[in-house]
Nucleic acid binder design. Structure first.
Lengths: 221, 221
DNA sequence: CCCGGTCATGACGCCTCGTCAATTTTCATT
DNA sequence: AATGAAAATTGACGAGGCGTCATGACCGGG
């Protein structure tokens, strides 16, 4: 048999083998169902059974793909982290000034959060007041990357010699908490949120954009 | 019968009735066991059964005191929130300047976190990478109080007219995330953490205390 | 056409859940 | 003290989730 024929790029592209095909498909089936169910019941209340019930598969099949509901959740989180991380890193590398570094980071993040609302809401919504955050390896790697980016920016003289670990923590804290609030507002305004955060990091309280309209919490002009 | 004798303050003080007594005692028994077990297994992995097994009580009794493991956790959280909230509020009311407002808030919070390490660790430790945060009514009320404190400080001209909601979120985000990092360092230094946060909010990045010693993450002098 | 390997299936044993009828404990009254 | 009602504790129970595994279906190569 001519191996080069069977394994030619063309054939592999059109027929990756039924085996592989259903494997990928099932995985996606489970992930989609999970997203759905998490959004509906909240992460905490969801059971593995709920997920497979939203799927044509049998209970045992679930465990061929994931070890637990946590692992599905990780996979969903990681998709996000993997999508956003290179973008953030790239923006930060391009930054010529501290301000650019900070503002690009926040803007990119908030825009992503706003676009990806569905995924983010999946976590927040839950009957009780539990809030879950998965610090998956992929997410943690994102944090670490931010820290090393800060460190190398410091080496380049962009930053003063700050405590990169604490600074990273502060950025992460503001990003997540502000992101949450942003999602509660209507209309969604990632740019404004990013401006707020940037001003805070650039010049502290006194530089914050004045609250043009009061009652931002509930009213919207 | 002389009611005033039976219900005299003295008697009530020494014997509040066995009924009441065991009720309080059992509640505490459960709370203590829960703290223990949460710290050991992590919040996510803990079951109601694990908690009562660490207690001389029967399974049914648990439900006379709490509806679920979430509610026990809430109760533990709330103890903390109730203990810390008045302190924070008081400090902020005394503040004559913005800087005092900010620095007192952070210092009080970080000192509390550091003292109360046990309670805080109970949440963080878990086999998987799940991080749980309970936004109980009591905790949310604490956030709201911070926001109204900001608003009234603004009214007094202490703050510029900022977006109090976002500012509150930023403070909360930094406090929690930095608190977490602080717990990972040795020796524990709440004052340094508070100084870092305060400098950030007062003057932004450029005011941050220089990292006197590098390698803060792992090394310690 | 057939065989070896891979994967889906769903029943199984174990465990937790929250409930509830039975029982014990407390307490006011006689 | 004796009594009876109210309150709280107990543990067994049905429902249902968990992760596993023997079974069988299905794919793909010879």
């Amino acid at each position: 048999m001519d191996v080069s024929l069977l394994k030619s790029p063309l054939l592999r592209a059109t027929s990756p083998g039924k085996r592989e095909q259903t494997k990928v498909q099932n995985r996606q089936l489970i992930l989609d169902a999970a997203r759905q169910v998490f959004a509906e019941l909240g992460y905490g209340a969801t059971t593995v059974r709920d997920i497979i019930r939203a799927t044509p598969l049998a209970s045992g099949t679930f465990y061929n793909y994931f070890k637990s509901k946590e692992e599905v959740f990780q996979a969903i989180r990681d998709e996000v982290a993997i999508a956003i991380r290179p973008r953030l890193h790239e923006e930060r590398m391009k930054a010529k000034t501290v301000e650019e570094f900070i503002s690009c980071s926040f803007r990119t993040f908030f825009e992503y959060v706003s676009d990806d609302r569905v995924n983010f809401r999946a976590i927040r919504h839950s009957a009780d007041s539990t809030r879950v955050r998965m610090d998956t390896p992929e997410v943690i790697a994102g944090f670490e990357e931010l820290r090393t980016d800060i460190e190398s920016a410091t080496a380049k003289g962009l930053f003063p010699p700050v405590d990169a670990d604490y600074l990273m923590a502060a950025i992460v804290g503001v990003a997540f908490e502000l992101g949450e609030r942003m999602l509660e507002r209507e209309p969604q305004d990632p740019v404004a949120a990013a401006e707020f955060a940037t001003a805070l990091f650039m010049g502290g309280l006194r530089s914050l954009p004045y609250a043009a309209e009061m009652g931002v919490t509930k009213g919207n002009a």
